[in-house]
Amino acid sequence: MILAEFDYVRPAGLDEALALLSGTRGAKALAGGQSLLPDLRSGADRAGLLVDIRRLAELRGIGRTTDGTRLRIGALTTLAELATDPLVLAEAPELAAAARANGDPQVRNLGTIGGNLLAAGRATDLPVAALAADAVAELAGPDGRSTVPAEELAAGPAPAGSVLTALLVPAAGPAAAFEKTADRATRYPVCATAVRITPGGPRIAVTGATSRALRLRGVEDRLRGGPYGTDAVLAAFRAEPRELFVPGRGTSAEYLGHLVGVLTARALHRAEQALAR
């Protein structure tokens, strides 16, 4: 039961949704609702008006951009759809794997990539994959459309009154992977890591073990040129400052620093194997 009271409206299109979100005090977008509804119930979040965008067709769909180099993934794509989409599996496998690692089948059936990317204060799985993929988020707001690198989106809240409309992801083929150690009860990551091997070197991002999803350029630089053996990867992480890793329930910084290295070595190994096939 949700004790908090709010109004509810289902706009017919994105423009109407944007007008409601920027013109109404306490208005919040409702998509899959898999984080928002529990938060409204617990009092962790509040809203005066829920603007239900779940059925807006213009925020759905997965396809290639016209130049073919990127995938455009609509923000209302569910995690279940992302995890099983053939194009995503072929061109951005770390995103598909991250989507599959989230929650449970029922949460993935309603939870959207937009909600997962914007889940404030939660270590969700998609942002780390978006960082490794060097993805760009497409936003629509009262002042028009804009694009924001995934790295910027992970660093702070999206502009007020704006709606994430799509994620643009460079197509990489198979050379990417995602690994996660999940908290047994909550399914949130104790640590998750995503990697993508590019001609310029590896891109490596982590979450869970750190204060938020982060690209680790220092580790990338140390590993440039390879090889990505477990010892080399662990050493590359040991060179990071200890304060990078934030101890959690039952985890020390030392443990997290080791775990993130092991998971990253595994991910790099799988990406290399996929590339060799």
Binding site: R10, L30, G33, L37, P38, S42, R54, A80, V107
Partner: peptide
């Protein structure tokens, strides 16, 4: 549990299994 953890409220919504404690009636309309 009423918090989306336990799955005993699972129903099918337009064919997909969902937790009915994590869906607003209005949104299911």
């Amino acid at each position: 549990c009423d918090t989306g953890q336990c799955g005993t409220c699972v129903v099918r919504l337009d064919g997909r299994s969902v937790k009915s404690c994590l869906v607003l009636t209005a949104s299911a309309g």
